[in-house]
Simulated assay, not measured.
Amino acid sequence: MTWLETEGGPLVVVPRAALSHWSGTEGDYDRACEVMDFVGVLALPDGAEALVLGDEPLSTAYLPEHRVLVRWCYAESGDGVADIIRAGLPTAEWEEGPALSTTGELVMFDAAYFGIEVGTLTDSTALELGAGSYRVDSASVEPDHLTSFRVHRFVELA
């Protein structure tokens, strides 16, 4: 798994086609920092929507085969994380989250950066999703008292 981190603020997930509209520290970063829930949705000027991973600035990875973002709360090591998550998904107690509309591929990056800096000044992770509407549900995967991950799944809406 490839983990993405921030410099202390939230991560944001923006449609690739709308990256130029993410203003980073010129305004959108402040709006992203106001999200106190696990996830929140912000409107962008062009009608696109951005998903904010609120709460804490946790290391985050994407499991594309399950359309799940994995946020590292705590664990003794990184060995077998994907297997831990796969095993925990069927029994996770999901909390329904906000709806997010997208035109296709999403890009996750540190909210402090301008969208046009993705791929040059900041690392990012691509999330391959088809165009449409998704509900972003949240749950915890805690197989033992030494391991905890927060997960967010993209559930396609009809």
Rank of each mutant, 00 (worst) to 15 (best):
M1R: 13
T2H: 10
W3A: 07
L4R: 08
L4V: 05
L4M: 10
L4I: 06
E5S: 11
E5H: 10
E5D: 08
T6A: 01
T6R: 04
E7R: 15
G8C: 09
G8R: 10
G8A: 05
G9V: 06
G9F: 15
P10V: 05
V12D: 00
V12T: 07
V12R: 03
V12K: 05
V14H: 01
P15I: 01
A17W: 07
A17K: 11
A18M: 02
A18P: 02
L19W: 04
L19N: 00
L19T: 03
H21E: 14
W22A: 04
W22F: 06
S23H: 10
S23F: 05
G24R: 03
T25N: 15
E26T: 14
E26C: 08
G27D: 12
G27H: 11
D28V: 04
Y29G: 06
D30T: 13
D30W: 15
D30E: 14
D30A: 15
D30S: 15
R31W: 07
R31K: 15
R31L: 14
C33T: 15
C33N: 12
E34M: 14
E34F: 13
M36I: 10
M36Y: 14
M36L: 11
D37M: 01
F38V: 04
F38H: 05
L42Y: 00
L42A: 01
A43P: 00
L44I: 04
L44S: 08
L44R: 06
L44E: 07
L44H: 05
P45S: 12
P45N: 12
P45I: 08
D46S: 12
D46V: 05
D46E: 08
D46R: 06
G47Y: 08
G47C: 02
G47L: 03
G47T: 09
A48L: 11
A48G: 11
A48T: 10
A48W: 05
E49H: 14
A50Q: 00
A50T: 07
A50W: 00
L51H: 09
L51W: 07
V52K: 14
L53V: 11
L53I: 12
L53H: 09
L53C: 09
G54M: 09
G54Y: 11
G54N: 11
G54Q: 02
G54D: 03
D55L: 13
E56Y: 07
P57E: 09
P57F: 10
P57R: 06
P57L: 10
P57H: 08
L58P: 04
L58C: 01
L58S: 03
L58W: 13
S59I: 04
S59F: 09
T60D: 03
T60W: 10
T60F: 13
Y62L: 01
Y62A: 00
Y62P: 00
L63K: 02
L63Q: 06
L63W: 08
P64K: 15
E65N: 05
E65C: 01
H66E: 12
H66N: 12
R67E: 03
R67Y: 10
R67L: 06
V68E: 01
L69N: 02
L69K: 03
L69R: 09
L69I: 07
V70Y: 12
V70E: 11
R71S: 12
R71E: 13
